[in-house]
Design a protein around this nucleic acid. Structure first.
Lengths: 196, 196
DNA sequence: GTCTATAGGTGGATAGAC
DNA sequence: GTCTATCCACCTATAGAC
C-alpha cells in the first residue's frame, strides 16, 4: 500500500506526490505546479508523463485500487478467520489516517461532480471491488458462525465502508484521529466481533 | 432548512446559490463567477456583500448550522419518542440527497485541509452541535427503554453521523441514492429501532 | 525526458464611476 | 448596491530547443 522506499522512476514519483496531495487536499485543490515544486522539475515535464490532469487522476485511482486489492489478497493469504480479516481490513483505514491522509477514493467521492467521466468510472470500480471482497468475508464469516448479524452481507458491507469513510473525514476535521478506531470498533461489534 | 420561496434579499440569494454549489461541487470547485452568472450580476457586486470567499464560507456554515439546529428543535417540539426522533433525524439527510445535494459540512470536511481557519472553526461547531443533540436523544431514549444499544451514547452518535455522511457520498458516486436509506436503516437497527 | 517560453483561460480581489 | 475596468496570481496545456 505504501510507495516503495527504493528510488522510483519519475512517473511513479509523480503519482506518489499527486496521491498525497489528493488524499489531503482533494482533486481540485492541487496543481501540476505543486507536484513540480516537490519534484524539482517543471510542469512541462509532468505533461510528458501525464498529458492531462484527468489522465493523471485515472492512473491515480487505478493504482490505488490495485494496491488496495493487493492488501486484501494479502489478508486472505493469511488464512485468518473472518474476525481477524475484518480487523485487518479496518487497519487499512486507520493506517491511512495515521499517515495524516484520507482515503484517496473517499476524497474523490466528495469531488465526484467535478470529475471527468473516466475518473468517475475508475472510482466506481474501486468501491465495487472493495464491496465485493467485504461482502464475501461477511457472508462466509456468518456461514461459519464467526460473525453474527442480520440482513444481507452486501448491505452490511456497504454501511461498514460508509462508516469508515465518514469517520475518517470527521476524525480529521474534529481533530480527533481516535474517532476512526472508535467508530470501527462499534461497527465491528454490530457484526458480532467482540472487543479485542 | 430550505430557502424561502419568497423573494429574498441579495445576500440571501448569494448564500443560496453558493450553498448549492458547495453542496454539489465543494468549496474549491466553485467561483464568484459561478454565483454571478446564476444571479445575473458582476463578481464585483458579490464582493460588496461578502468581501472574501472565506467570509462567504463562514456565513455559509453558520447559516447551515442554524437551519440544521432549527430542524432539530422542530423534531424535539413534536414530543415524539426517541425512535421517531431518530427517523426524523435520518430524514434530514435523505431530504438533502433527494435534492441532489450532499451535506454542506460533509463536503467541507473533505476540503478541510484547504479551508481558512475561521471556516474550520465553524465546521467543528456544526458537528459538535449535531453530536450534542444526537447524544441526548440516544441517552434519553435508552434510559426510557425506547432504544437498545451498548456503549456510550456519544460514541453511538458519532458513528451514526459518520455512517450517514459517508453513505451520502457513496450513494452519489455509486449512482444509487437508495443506499443512504439502506445504511440508515441498518444503523438504526443497531440502536434497537425496529424496521418501519 | 527535461527544459524555456508562452499561450489562453480563470481565479479572487480592488478602485472608482454612477 | 451595482457597474466597468483592471490587477496580478495561478491554472492547464503546448511548441519547440536541447
Amino acid at each position: 500500500m505504501r510507495p516503495s522506499s527504493a528510488v522510483a522512476d519519475t512517473s511513479t514519483r509523480i503519482l506518489d506526490i499527486a496521491e498525497r496531495l489528493v488524499q489531503t487536499r482533494g482533486f481540485n485543490a492541487f496543481s501540476y505546479a505543486n507536484i513540480a515544486a516537490a519534484l524539482h522539475v517543471t510542469t512541462a515535464s509532468l505533461h510528458y508523463h501525464f498529458p492531462t490532469k484527468g489522465k493523471l487522476g485515472e492512473r491515480l485511482i487505478e493504482r490505488y485500487r490495485t494496491g488496495f486489492l493487493a492488501a486484501l489478497d494479502a489478508i486472505d493469504a493469511t488464512g485468518a478467520d473472518a474476525v481477524q480479516k475484518l480487523r485487518a481490513y479496518v487497519g487499512l483505514y486507520t493506517d491511512v489516517l495515521a499517515r495524516n491522509r484520507m482515503c484517496l477514493c473517499g476524497m474523490l467521492a466528495a469531488d465526484y461532480e467535478t470529475l471527468p467521466k473516466p475518473m468517475r468510472t475508475e472510482l466506481r470500480r474501486f468501491f465495487d471491488a472493495n464491496e465485493v471482497w467485504l461482502t464475501r468475508v461477511l457472508d462466509t464469516g456468518r456461514e461459519r458462525d464467526e460473525l453474527t448479524f442480520a440482513g444481507s452481507p452486501v448491505d452490511a458491507a456497504r454501511v461498514l465502508v460508509a462508516a469508515l469513510e465518514g469517520a475518517m473525514m470527521l476524525a480529521r476535521s474534529q481533530g480527533d484521529p481516535a474517532r476512526l478506531q472508535s467508530a470501527a470498533d462499534r461497527m465491528l461489534a454490530g457484526l458480532g466481533v467482540k472487543p479485542a
